[in-house]
Design a protein around this nucleic acid. Structure first.
Lengths: 198, 198
DNA sequence: GTGAACATGTAACAAGTTACATGATTGA
DNA sequence: TCAATCATGTAACTTGTTACATGTTCAC
């Protein structure tokens, strides 16, 4: 499916009307934050373009109590059709990028003390994320099966990750430290800037 | 840390020398594939730039048995320093993008039969991924604690995901079907291309 | 003889991020 | 008074992808 910022906005607007600012908050702090990314710089242009194309509408709301004026967007029938079309497409493969795992891959090259700091910080981050999800699952309405499924998926995965990381902690921090600096590359250690042009 | 294609190449070259083609294969099929992305279009330029900067060297290898000539890259001392520097940086937050989860979030809008197809296809994909990892874990040397840790992490997570998906299958496919088409947006159903300019 | 695997590279393009620009109110 | 929250938007930039261009050999 075409999972870009546009589809994301349509999805959110299919649940309730919202401003660009609110959409971004949902993406950054809400359930979506766990499997999607989007910043102002992509949300506002997407909204503007979809307005031109008739997929969404705007309603201006005077800023209450001196607040700045807000543009409340809502989805149109054409927008819903576009969303349904995107939803019917085969999903692209999941993409998971983890600098932490990359570091673990080369952990033996990292200073043992610093490695411990990184490792523990990562566990804490996962725990914060889990707690956030736990709170969200409380807030989300019980009739929204989709949100519940996704939240439960996230809770399960985060719980597993945290347990794994805690279980392996000692092993990692010891084993990786012992043969530290031991494994060199199969190279004839050059020091300067030698270049073999093609 | 600066986890871009350059750092990735340095990391791989710190384990063994390789051609651009080989690096890409490792990224696409090896352990790295589970938490990193990189295509020819980014690997070759990265290698070329690092060569200029003295972080890597090349050795030309005449194509054996008519094979095309290969440029075998290896890391230099300066390259190792750059890698270590990157490795010592705080890792960025994990990024997980899942179109599948997005679809589950709005599952009630998807045709029930098609939803089942998508769901089962996703499970199968995860199972294929798990089997791949299982094979890799056999191949990777037992002394490489980093690779083992990462592979085990992947196996644990994939196993959990598959179990979760299988357990919830009936629930999802039934519950989501029953109140299908029920939830509309809080909009005054417009049909045309009305536009409220700012 | 056809496609897959090996092998390197470029150029156009897509997508989204970061930083900037602006401005009011509220609470510490 | 200083930071945070609400609020919208643009422009330059980064990063990486897709598709193209080229050529061989091996196995079916």
């Amino acid at each position: 499916m075409t999972m870009n910022v546009r589809t994301l906005c349509l999805g959110i607007l299919s649940m309730r009307e919202a401003t660009g600012y609110e959409i971004r908050k949902m993406v950054e702090e809400g359930v979506f934050s766990h499997f999607i990314d989007a910043s102002y710089g992509s949300i506002y242009p997407a909204l503007a373009r979809m307005l031109k194309e008739g997929l969404v509408q705007v309603r201006m709301e005077a800023g209450e109590q001196g607040r700045p004026a807000r543009k409340v967007y809502s989805i149109t029938a054409r927008g819903q059709a576009a969303l349904d079309e995107a939803l019917a497409t085969d999903p692209a493969r999941d993409k998971f990028k983890s600098e932490f795992l990359f570091q673990m891959m080369f952990a033996r090259r990292i200073d043992p003390d610093h490695l411990a700091v990184i490792y523990d910080a990562y566990i804490e981050e996962q725990e914060r994320e889990l707690q956030l999800l736990e709170e969200e699952v409380q807030r989300c309405p019980p009739e929204d099966a989709g949100a519940r499924f996704v939240a439960d998926y996230g809770r399960t995965m985060l719980g597993t990750a945290i347990a794994f990381l805690k279980q392996r902690r000692e092993e990692v921090l010891c084993a990786f430290t012992e043969n530290n600096q031991e494994a060199g590359p199969p190279t004839t250690e050059p020091t300067g800037k030698e270049e073999q042009p093609s």
